[in-house]
């Protein structure tokens, strides 16, 4: 890859679930001017008090290397894994999408939801809330299609990711 080419990477970080750890990670990104396209965090092992942070970021190969090295040297960080480099991985995001419409637009939104396997998790006479799960690109596409159909609010979780096959962190 060209040294100046910017590419997107999904990085998983296993951390001790102690207070301030998320602030450390976010502070590192803002303080050093790195991008955060998406960031999710939740405890994954209650007994071991470990959380997993998934960050989608972008940069030149050198910047991506820096990001990983900087993350690795944070004291509460157990492990940093670049899922984009580690091989094939699964990336999923969940979005709740509110569409306020009536008549043909309302019906059309239902039809598109069906194609995208999005579920209506709330409905009133004037609105739907769709739940859609998929890759960020799929969700982007869904949202784009909803735009002319009364799209009025979006809540997205950000990306959770894991490598395919037997490979673990």
């Amino acid at each position: 890859m060209k040294e100046t080419e910017i590419s997107k990477h999904t990085i998983s970080v296993l951390v001790d679930n102690e207070s301030g750890v998320l602030a450390r990670v976010i502070g590192l990104f803002s303080g050093r001017g790195y991008n955060i396209e998406s960031l999710t965090v939740a405890e994954v092992d209650a007994n071991a008090h470990q959380s997993r942070i998934t960050v989608v970021t972008s940069g030149t190969p050198m910047v991506i290397e820096q990001i990983k090295a900087q993350l690795s040297r944070l004291v509460p960080v157990h492990k940093v894994s670049d899922l984009t480099l580690a091989g094939p991985s699964v990336e999923r995001e969940l979005a709740l999408v509110k569409v306020i419409a009536s008549g043909e637009k309302r019906v059309e939104s239902l039809r598109i939801a069906d194609i995208f396997k999005a579920r209506a998790v709330d409905a009133t006479n004037d609105s739907f809330v769709y739940e859609i799960i998929g890759s960020p690109e799929k969700i982007d596409a869904f949202i784009k299609l909803m735009e002319p159909l009364g799209l009025s609010e979006i809540s997205r979780t950000g990306v959770a990711a894991i490598s395919r096959g037997t490979l673990t962190m």
Partner: peptide
Amino acid sequence: IDQSSINKNVP
């Protein structure tokens, strides 16, 4: 000793 010092400014 610091991985992040390597390839930071100069490859």
